[in-house]
Amino acid sequence: APIILDTYRVIADFEKTSKHEITLHTDDLVEIVEKNENGWWFCQCESKRGWIPASYLEPLDGPDEVEDADPNYEGEEYITIQAYKAEQEDEISLVVGETVEVIHKLLDGWWVVRKGDENGYFPSMFLSKAGK
């Protein structure tokens, strides 16, 4: 049977920054082949195929629907596997090997994490589930 892929609309121009990404423009329609939880989605648009940030897409059917999971205020333990220095004021800076609590897993790959009294957005690709 044919595989039906979800169609998404591009909501802002995106310029590729590495080889396996593709450049897309506002209102382009893309089919999603793979949704990676790090926030990079593999898509095809006409003859182009490559990765683009999930945050630049909205579902064609039901753009107002929230696809993100609900926040979990109890938190889920993760360990940082790479350091990240906050570039925006709503982000959190962490070094390698810190234990944090993930409060909200967003599809765009930027998760809300809590460390002590602090919280902020952190790249999910720099986190590994504790105990794994």
């Binding site: 802002a12 590495s18 990079w40 990765w51 945050s55 925006q88 930027w110 957005y121 690709m125 720099f126």
Partner: peptide
């Protein structure tokens, strides 16, 4: 075959999207 995703974090949502989230 699908290549591995980029090794850098994806960019934060564009300003258009942040307005919608707010």
């Amino acid at each position: 075959s699908i290549k591995n995703p980029p090794q850098n974090p994806p960019p934060r949502p564009p300003p258009e999207m942040r307005r919608k989230q707010a």
